[in-house]
Design a protein around this nucleic acid. Structure first.
Lengths: 150, 150
DNA sequence: CAATTCCCGATCAATTTAGTCGGGAATGAA
DNA sequence: TTCATTCCCGACTAAATTGATCGGGAATTG
């Protein structure tokens, strides 16, 4: 289990955006400083997040980035998927991945192993896809533990 | 979520050993062929597993490898830890890892994020440490779903 | 038009991964 | 003792991935 620096930076940036006043774009310079993210690296990341429809951007003076959707609807899993390509791939290890056209490996327990890996993939996916950016921010604010407005 | 080829090979080898008659060493040549594992790579892996006390070896004619403990007591997690170094490190991402002496990053949601990552680490660890080699083999044998001898 | 701000492809160094190579040391049989 | 067998072990390497950096270009606004 590992997460790339790229995904971590992406999550930082989104958290910063989610925590800042809406309808007021934040520039990459600010995101870079607040999140301690290398500026040029951040540019790549924001472009990906834009393609993924997580954020939207505005160019020119007074431009910048803002969330494209409410923080409640953006999950950690979605962010990671967008910047890293996928969340999990254990389930595919024994099939196509790496074995380009090679015969599928066969050894005792192979199908049980495959099933277990898939199970773990699902576990991780459902955790990360179920954890929203809003959830994360709320954990830092003990006051509003449970939402007021339903 | 990813697993290294090294760890996958290690698991294959252990499954093969666990599935073969006990008290009769299996040679690396056999393990290599049965598991489709490059021989010289396998050598490195088996040495690690030996240091980890998962297997024991015997040299000379008629020598080879066998499990050092019952398959029930060997988990996927333990194997991965031994060959890859560790299972999870999400929880450490925001602390020491990578930031050599650098100030701990601070941005909105940082502590919630850390908590969530640690939670996921624990989830993955407990899954992998709880899944034994015997469990995996049993999944391939629908007959003995539940153990006879308790 | 000119400052600002995002957009985008190319390149690069360091690290990790997935092995290979070449021999050495212990063991057991003849 | 000698020899084949089998594990032991360190050094090396090629390819992929990661974590960026660089240099400019395109849109927008005042």
């Amino acid at each position: 289990m590992k997460i790339s620096k790229k995904a971590e930076y992406a999550i930082r940036a989104i958290l910063i955006l989610a925590d800042s006043p809406p309808n007021q774009p934040l520039q990459m310079q600010d995101l870079s400083e607040t999140g301690s993210i290398p500026l040029k690296f951040l540019e790549q990341i924001m472009l990906l997040l834009k393609k993924g429809a997580i954020v939207r951007s505005k160019r020119g003076v007074g431009g910048g980035y803002q969330l494209n959707r409410p923080a409640r609807s953006i999950s950690l899993g979605e962010i990671i998927q967008i910047v890293d390509g996928s969340l999990c791939s254990l389930g595919e290890l024994l099939r196509a991945s790496g074995n380009h056209g090679a015969p599928a490996p066969s050894f005792p327990g192979v199908s049980g192993l495959e099933t277990s890996f898939q199970e773990l993939d699902d576990l991780v996916n459902s955790y990360l896809l179920g954890k929203s950016v809003e959830d994360i921010l709320a954990m830092d604010r003990p006051e509003d533990v449970l939402a007021f407005e339903i």
